[in-house]
Amino acid sequence: MQTRPLGDTGHDSTVMTFGAIALNWLEQEGANQMVEHVLDYGVNHFDVAPEYGDAELKLGPKLRQHREDIFLGCKTQERTYEGAWRKLDRSLNRLGVDNIDLYQVHGLEYDSELDEITGDDGALAAFREAKEEGLIDHIGLTSHGDPGLILDALDRIDDLESLMFPLNPVVAGKDDEEYDYEAVLARADEKNVGTLGIKAFAGGSWPSTDELPEADRPLANWYRPVTAPDEISDRFDFAAAQGLTSVVSAGDPKLVTMILEAAADYDGMDATAQRSLIERVRHDDSPVPEQLHH
């Protein structure tokens, strides 16, 4: 599988990152097999979080067995110094490792949170101490929020080495600033900050829970993903062709093999094919009636 430098970290990440939330939906034996399966494809970057149910615990055994083959990303939703330290300790314990390669501020959503994490008593102070102590190696940030906020974070956090944010043909087809994650990618590239793409496989939101109760959803993803192999492959190719360092796999274990196959086969995507995909999803989604043309 192709690899790309993750910003200035010195690590070359595979073009696919394994979203280890998928392990939460498996029993331990299945989780072990899944990790072996992902490693068989050469994937070397894993991403997990304490919020993903039992994913940390289920990743633990195989992570410890293959520790040197896995660049491990973890994250915290805590915004304070105390909270971040507590969550980091807990993740290290649950994963059963001495060190996390990339520790990320998880799900930044509001301006006030950026103020909080960068303050004297903020989460980043804990991250930096942990880095000095060798408990983490690199600092990152994840958000599916306002691109403007992510750009601010990029400007204000000097030691940020990676960003994780949404990128797919649905958002690429929208012009509003609230969807301008391409601007985030461009600025991150300028600053040589690594980029990890999420929601690459999002097809849309789930129907309302009145229409489809959560318990009746056929897949474990936050969003309704594309599920056909050729669609998965198009979506992977599109995300990887935007220039992201790595594309994070979808959260449902049923999709992981298709994404691994797509990542293993990745060899670029023409600009015309990228536009075709943007057009396709734009029309699937369009509120404008009766369009005969593109």
Binding site: S276, D284, S286, H293
Partner: peptide
Amino acid sequence: LLEPVPWTESHVSA
């Protein structure tokens, strides 16, 4: 501009 041209369900029905 496009290759292939995506004739989506909405185009086809239009």
